[in-house]
Nucleic acid binder design. Structure first.
Length: 263
DNA sequence: AGGATTTGACCGTT
DNA sequence: AACGGTCAAATCCT
């Protein structure tokens, strides 16, 4: 199923080196120049959502790297062949925390111009979702601990430093973020769903729609929007009776605030 | 059917 | 020789 260069058929006896040369020769002069122009080296990022950065990638390899516990995955821009886009990235898990942090090494800039604000929004939503999931798991662990302590009264603990003003503010902010995330995700899904049938008729694609195919057709610029939650609103996994401040700390939400705009 | 992913082999560099 | 990066046949998935 792998597409081959027109310059080499499947029965060719060419060596790999010769194959590479043929591929290079077949590349157009313009593409070669474009690739030289955008070759700016590499940059490294750390993220919780390495697979949703606003671009479409195709995996072309995976390798265990010496000294790392996790494999490194190799990705190229989906439009590497179609548009000669030189962008590529390596993704490797950086730690075993929950959610795990990934190191992403980007090489070369995109020349395909397929990113858009809606995809960026989806990327930040993925980060929010993963962090919220982790927060929920922590709360569930706290609940189990609480139940265990009800059965065996705590002898060792001093009374928890229950909810200072700063702690309450931070928890309120976290609640706002969760509510905002859910609302913006719901909006995004609604827009994508309404756009999808039209796309299907236009393109006749059988397969699932690539993220960029859907979002590129949406003229809406969706970005996370901070919508303060009502003070009355209680999220059961955030109840004071459930939370033990030793276990659940307010998240660092600075990155979210930077990416939002107030409605 | 055909695009995406997996994975062992190959290649260049150190 | 060891290692990291890439290729491409086989396989998976929709």
């Amino acid at each position: 199923m792998v597409k081959r260069s027109d310059n080499m058929d499947s029965s060719s006896e060419c060596s790999r080196g010769a194959h590479k040369r043929l591929l290079q020769d077949s590349r157009s002069y313009e593409q070669e120049n474009a690739m030289k122009k955008v070759c700016i080296g590499t940059r490294t990022e750390y993220t919780y959502a390495p697979y949703h950065d606003g671009y479409q990638w195709r995996k072309y390899g995976q390798k265990m790297i010496r000294g790392n516990s996790f494999p490194r995955c190799y990705y190229r821009c989906t439009y590497h062949q179609d548009h000669g886009c030189p962008a590529s990235k390596h993704v490797e898990q950086h730690n075993s925390e929950d959610p795990p942090l990934f190191r992403v090494i980007y090489t070369n800039e995109h020349t395909c111009g397929t990113s858009n604000s809606a995809s960026d929004y989806m990327a930040s939503s993925m980060q929010i979702q993963q962090i919220a999931d982790a927060s929920l798991r922590k709360a569930q662990a706290a609940e189990r601990l609480r139940k265990a302590e009800v059965e065996t009264p705590r002898l060792m603990h001093s009374p928890p430093p229950r909810c200072s003003g700063g702690y309450n503010i931070a928890m309120k902010e976290e609640k706002d973020v969760i509510v905002s995330s859910l609302l913006t995700v719901i909006r995004g899904c609604h827009i994508a769903e309404s756009a999808a049938p039209l796309l299907c008729r236009q393109t006749g694609r059988r397969r699932r729609w690539p993220e960029a195919t859907i979002t590129a057709s949406c003229s809406y610029a969706i970005s996370p929007e901070l919508l303060p939650a009502s003070d009355d609103l209680t999220l059961d996994f955030m109840l004071d009776s459930v939370l033990d401040p030793h276990w659940v700390e307010p998240l660092d939400l600075a990155w979210f605030k930077e990416s939002t705009h107030t409605g």
